[in-house]
């Protein structure tokens, strides 16, 4: 019962912070917009070429944008001391971290996947491809944030932690990238994306099961 109370409080606080500080969600969205809009200028307006690179560019852009939020996961709390509230809580730390990442994924995943179809217009992608891309962004953001929470926990309040986090996390997101972009490509070629979607979902569930435990262990080590 009090586990539910604690996780609800974590989620509520995360969403309150999101509502309070517009930059938390505006910065990733702006970054995503800029990445997606720069490529067509560099590549040219040939629509076949744009269609092919568009899927990859949008997907990578969404992952990079989501990465921007990773340092926020624990760094600010470590600075003002509220991380100690989580560490000193009688409830399992992994559950609290999961609640936190879930709240962040919910807010950020929905925001990024909502703008994805708009950005797909820059690349002349048909609507069904854009919708598939959007769905995959929605599934990839939680995976990325879950994997990223381990790195963020390890590097909490470390100097230059943001860059190191990116270096540690991005290679681990390659499978998500392959299957996410792969599913959209399949739709573009008129084939069934079922296999890619299943694998994408499998990665998300694997991350869901393992990452909070690893992040909790990492956080205990790095704050000791």
């Amino acid at each position: 019962m009090s586990l539910r109370g604690a996780t609800t409080a974590v989620i509520r606080r995360e969403l309150q912070l999101f509502a309070q500080r517009k930059s938390d969600w505006a910065n990733p969205l702006m970054f995503f917009l800029i990445v997606c809009s720069l490529f067509p200028f560099a590549v040219g307006s040939e629509s076949e070429k744009l269609k092919l690179i568009g899927i990859g560019v949008i997907f990578v852009g969404a992952l990079l944008a989501a990465m921007l939020s990773l340092p926020k996961l624990f760094d600010e709390d470590a600075r003002d001391g509220s991380l100690e509230l989580m560490l000193a809580s009688p409830e399992p730390l992994a559950a609290l971290i999961l609640a936190r990442v879930a709240a962040l994924s919910l807010a950020l995943g929905i925001a990024l996947s909502a703008v994805t179809p708009v950005f797909a217009l820059f690349y002349a992608l048909p609507f069904d491809v854009a919708a598939m891309l959007s769905l995959n962004v929605l599934m990839a953001v939680p995976t990325l944030l879950l994997v990223g929470s381990i790195a963020a926990a390890l590097l909490v309040s470390a100097r230059g932690g943001a860059i190191l986090t990116a270096v540690l996390v991005l290679p681990l997101t390659i499978p998500t990238l392959i299957f996410g972009a792969g599913a959209a490509l399949k739709v573009l070629y008129g084939e069934s994306p079922a296999a890619e979607l299943a694998l994408q979902a499998a990665f998300m569930l694997l991350a869901l099961a393992l990452c909070p435990l690893a992040a909790a262990a990492a956080l205990k080590i790095s704050t000791d």
């Binding site: 606080r13 309150q16 600010e76 003002d80 001391g81 509220s82 100690e84 000193a88």
Partner: peptide, 12 residues
């Protein structure tokens, strides 16, 4: 435990 840091978030 109440330490040097206040454990309060500035925005809330």
């Amino acid at each position: 435990f109440v330490g040097h840091a206040n454990a309060f978030n500035d925005a809330l």
